[in-house]
Simulated scan of single mutants.
Amino acid sequence: MIDKQQVVDLWQECFNDSEAFVRLYFSTKYTEENTLVHIENGKVLSALQMLPYSMTCWGRELRISYISGASTWPEARGRGLMKDLLTEAFRVMRSRDVHFSTLIPAESWLFDFYRRLGYGTVFHSCMKNYEVTPIKKYPLSHSYSEEELYAYFMISMEKRPCCIQHSFQDFQIILADLYLAGGKVFAVSGDRGHIGGLALVVPDSGKVWIKEWMYDNDEMKKKLLFEIESLYPRHEIVSIIPVSHEEGTPFGMMRIIDASMILQYYAAAYPEIDMTISLRDEQIPSNTATYILEKGFCKKKPFQCDNVGFIFSPAKLVERIFSNKSCPVPCMSLMLN
């Protein structure tokens, strides 16, 4: 049995989060079955959580494990404890039939650390500023329940071709976190009073950050911006949007957990691909193999490094997959990061 309070204490030591957020997280997202810890002499020295999500990609729904709260006490760092915990996490994920693992590094130097453990940078973003267009005729919006907001949110998110999805419970926690930060939900009406646009925003230091938004058309977008500017006049309106690796800066990372299954899905989505890949995976040895992608199928053979087109690490392979011009830009948002 894990001493939850010790995990809380470690979190508070390593992350600059408010007491209110910590209470919210550990009362809603934390479960012992999704937590791994390293203990010495009764003390939790290192911990992480593996939070389950789904991701729509290639017309499928894939199982995702998001790494949250990866932390080690300062005096225990440099001993490889987190590397060992993540390696164990990959074993647990394989046993749960997880396809990918994702994470958002807390600091820039951690991109290199996670890359050595197989994570590639596939989520990129850029900041965009918005100006408000005056609206001559603007009907008042209705008041919507959380269920109605989520129904619109879910439909909009599922339309994105490569996107990590959130359950209704996730959505409720996201809203609770938003309100803790002084944020607000904007919902504008479209046809027949139904929601036509939704935005989750947080004001901070003269700016209004759009954490996530979706809208049916450009008119709904203008309505959202008009409402935001009306409540926060003279604030700069900024959103962080997902973009391709050529256009943005690194934001989040992904690791392949089940290479055989992922490459089969990839081959089926792009049957024109004809290539041979040799993958060497030190943390998940069962992934180490040579994969032949041809005519929409993937064949797995024993690893060989001679006469093959490409030899990949897990990080290079996932980056190669999502840098394919035909592959949609991956989107990950509202992860309580």
Rank of each mutant, 00 (worst) to 15 (best):
52 P>C: 09
330 P>G: 01
297 F>N: 12
95 S>V: 01
162 C>T: 15
151 A>M: 11
226 F>I: 02
172 Q>S: 14
330 P>E: 03
306 D>F: 09
87 T>P: 01
180 L>Q: 07
187 A>W: 01
10 L>V: 02
157 M>W: 09
324 N>S: 10
245 H>P: 01
30 Y>V: 06
199 A>L: 05
37 V>D: 07
165 Q>K: 15
130 Y>D: 00
285 P>V: 10
302 P>G: 04
54 S>V: 05
47 A>R: 05
215 Y>H: 12
165 Q>F: 04
13 E>M: 09
63 R>W: 00
170 D>C: 03
128 K>R: 14
194 H>F: 09
156 S>P: 08
27 S>Q: 10
12 Q>A: 04
77 R>P: 11
3 D>E: 15
150 Y>P: 06
191 D>R: 07
247 E>S: 13
179 Y>T: 00
13 E>W: 14
94 R>S: 13
161 P>M: 05
322 F>L: 09
106 A>H: 06
226 F>A: 13
319 E>H: 07
253 M>L: 13
97 D>P: 00
205 S>P: 00
109 W>D: 15
106 A>I: 10
78 G>L: 11
22 V>N: 03
54 S>D: 12
114 Y>S: 07
14 C>E: 10
32 E>S: 12
321 I>S: 01
289 A>H: 01
132 V>S: 08
322 F>R: 03
111 F>S: 10
25 Y>W: 13
296 G>R: 07
145 S>Q: 09
101 S>L: 04
144 Y>S: 06
115 R>M: 04
279 L>E: 05
127 M>A: 10
323 S>L: 03
322 F>C: 06
309 G>L: 07
115 R>Y: 02
218 D>K: 12
167 S>W: 15
44 V>M: 04
102 T>H: 03
318 V>R: 00
232 Y>M: 10
193 G>W: 08
218 D>Y: 14
243 V>H: 11
159 K>C: 06
320 R>E: 10
187 A>L: 03
112 D>F: 10
87 T>L: 03
88 E>M: 08
225 L>V: 06
17 D>Q: 05
135 I>S: 07
221 K>L: 13
251 F>H: 15
85 L>M: 03
284 I>M: 15
104 I>L: 15
310 F>W: 11
114 Y>N: 05
155 I>V: 14
236 E>V: 13
